[in-house]
């Protein structure tokens, strides 16, 4: 069951990657990488359960904390043209 869920999430991440590659505007791409990051968090939690090491859940939580840094950088650059 966990394997099926992981497979579905990887396939949907590939679908989102299509939007990230084609995305005509930069906002499409930023949104795509944000969705991929969220899928990564779920995927790592699922891998933890597949390997019967549920403490991977902590790592998934830490990923969720790291996830938004790049998004903030992109959006700040998009809005202000610089980072400082």
């Amino acid at each position: 069951m966990f394997e099926s869920a992981a497979l579905a999430i990887i396939l949907s991440a590939i679908l989102v990657l299509y939007r990230g590659i084609r995305g005509p505007r930069i906002c499409d791409r930023v949104l795509a990488i944000n969705v991929i990051g969220t899928k990564t968090v779920v995927l790592i939690a699922l891998i933890g359960f597949i390997y019967e090491r549920p403490h991977f859940m902590d790592i998934a939580l830490a990923y969720a904390l790291i996830n938004f840094i790049a998004t903030i950088a992109f959006l700040k650059y998009r809005e202000m043209g610089r980072l400082d």
């Binding site: 991440a13 990657l17 990230g20 590659i21 995305g23 930069i26 791409r29 930023v30 795509a32 990488i33 991929i36 990051g37 990564t40 995927l43 790592i44 891998i47 991977f56 790592i59 990923y63 790049a70 992109f74 650059y77």
Partner: peptide
Amino acid sequence: LLGATIILGAYSLIMAVVWTM
């Protein structure tokens, strides 16, 4: 180049999944 940077971010996230596997 900004789009390429975003795609590299996606690369790193999935690479992290591979390391976890």
